[in-house]
Design a binder for these strands. Structure first.
Lengths: 318, 318
DNA sequence: TCGCGATAGTTGACTTAGTCAACTAAATCA
DNA sequence: TGATTTAGTTGACTAAGTCAACTATCGCGA
């Protein structure tokens, strides 16, 4: 998916964003420093506190697990743990399963010590939050979650996707995303979005559950695609509102959606499916051809800003 | 720090917020660690890089100013600066004004060295941002600024939100959020969402730029509210599609939106504003009353699932 | 104008935090 | 069975940072 263009504008925007992030990093480094200051009063170093944290939150850990979790040097960690043991904060029992390992757990005293440190950390953050008004606090928490979600977003091996019937909000989503994506990619204006809104409204208003259907594709709780099949006449159905989010392209979702429509149309007794599309939509065109649709008509159209070519496609279901 | 009320609820909320902040701190500490990793390859320690940063960004600094800015120990800093001087990165000239001070500046070579380090830092952040889609990047930058503003305790009147004309996608957003929120709060079904879609479509189709308007409220690149004023007759305007996101309540946004509409209606020469609302919407009702609207009619309605009471309100201008 | 407390900067002695490499003992694999 | 890994320990080392004592200068008030 090559982006719109490598404008100098885009580039400059990225630079500004980088500067903002750096600024934030400097700021937050200092902020964390201030918050950690409280820990300096305790006889434990920051690293030691983090080790205690790990031990308090997962039981029966081995030294190497702690080391891996925190990225610590083995030798360093070994000494920290010996110190803890001498102070009676942890006890270690040789693992039955593996003679090389020791299983570590906080003792009662260790638990108390950690609780005290934990409380202090909470207090220091509580004090920071206390300086904010309640709505600002809420906002801060929510906004921090946003940062985490945006950056932590391990794309990883995610679920494929799920097709489901529409729920409240989905119809609006269809309008919203059509508006955004067609503006971005073809420069269509609000009139196009309004047309989609009308189509959607009509679909819901005149909905015939026996002969019409809408599918929403969802992945990780996020809508990533849509398609509807509506009745045009008793024998002819119309495919509408096909959309696949750019970030969900390449999953075969488009093909799947079109496939569902065709299957449903056959099963419901239609003899033909029609659809309208814009000639510019390469990916969509490819999908339709692949599914057996034929281009039956095209004409220029100029109602949404830039001129485009409206195409009518048909598929006979014999 | 005695809080507003020692509700268990408030208290628990604060605790959750504290946990979120701590979680964020752990997360971001690691994040910064990853970003700083690149610096490890250079012969300069993180502190040294920060000192160079200060020197590069403000000229004619004295050692103590740098020390204060970064919270460094004087002795430590003194040695770092001597090192820089020996490597030819900075030169220091005794201050004419104060014989104790030395004015520090980067040499040409120092400037080059810093540029190299700075580029590396930018690249590492650029790589991080590069993994995000453009809108997410914008959002991240903006949200980080918000964290900074909230914690930096700039008492200055910071930009709470921004009102702007609609862009592609916004109309769909209005439909989407109406659908979701009214389903959540009143159990309305898709027919309500469809009605909103129709209203929106009609608004765009028949839009009269001179006498109609729509405002979108945005915060951190995220839409948080909307309102439209449409022409009903030459003398009567209708207020529609007022929505404030739950998480943006308490900012006075609703009042502001209604206020904008009234101001615009006056200025445009309307003599009356009407609106329809549901009797259940307490917050909205309060807003309208406050703005001077009177309830002129109500009747039960049952087209969107649960029964509700449709109310007509009016405001005479002047 | 003298004197005193504060500030700018330096230096030596020290601690803390963390790294590296060599080692033992147990586990795993071919 | 022997070769290789892995868990954990230890000693020697370095980098990063702190602390306190010191000199030189400044600025202010008596």
């Amino acid at each position: 998916m090559s982006d719109i263009g490598s404008d100098a504008g885009l580039d400059q925007q990225l630079h500004q964003q980088i500067e903002k992030v750096r600024r934030f990093n400097r700021f937050y480094t200092r902020q964390i420093g201030v918050l950690d200051e409280g820990m300096l009063a305790s006889p434990y170093s920051l690293t030691e506190v983090r080790v205690l944290y790990e031990l308090a939150h997962r039981d029966q850990l081995t030294a190497s697990e702690v080391g891996k979790a925190l990225g610590l040097d083995g030798g360093y960690l070994s000494r920290i743990l010996r110190g803890f043991q001498q102070q009676g904060l942890i006890d270690s029992t040789p693992s039955a399963a593996d003679g090389r390992q020791n299983l570590l757990r906080l003792t009662e005293q260790g638990r108390e010590t950690f609780a005290m440190l934990d409380l202090r950390a909470r207090e220091s953050i509580g004090a920071m939050l206390g300086r904010l008004a309640a709505p600002d606090r809420r906002r801060l928490a929510s906004v921090m979650q946003t940062v985490e979600a945006l950056l932590g977003g391990e794309p990883g091996p995610r679920e494929l996707y799920l097709l489901r019937p529409p729920q409240p909000g989905d119809m609006g989503w269809i309008v919203h995303r059509h508006g955004v994506l067609y503006a971005q990619e073809y420069g269509f204006d609000q009139r196009f979005e309004a047309l989609v809104a009308e189509i959607v409204a009509k679909f819901v208003r005149d909905f015939d559950p026996a002969r019409e259907r809408c599918w929403i594709a969802e992945r990780d709780g996020e809508v990533i695609g849509s398609i509807c099949l509506v009745k045009e006449t008793e024998k002819v159905a119309k495919l509408r509102l096909l959309l696949v989010e750019p970030k969900a392209r390449g999953l075969g979702l488009g093909r799947r959606l079109v496939g569902e429509c065709i299957r449903f149309a056959r099963q419901t007794g239609y003899q033909r499916i029609t659809l309208m599309t814009d000639g510019e939509l390469r990916a969509a065109r490819h999908l339709y051809e692949e599914a057996g649709f034929r281009l039956v008509h095209e004409e220029p159209h100029r109602g949404w800003g830039p001129e485009c070519i409206l195409q009518a496609w048909e598929l006979d279901l014999n």
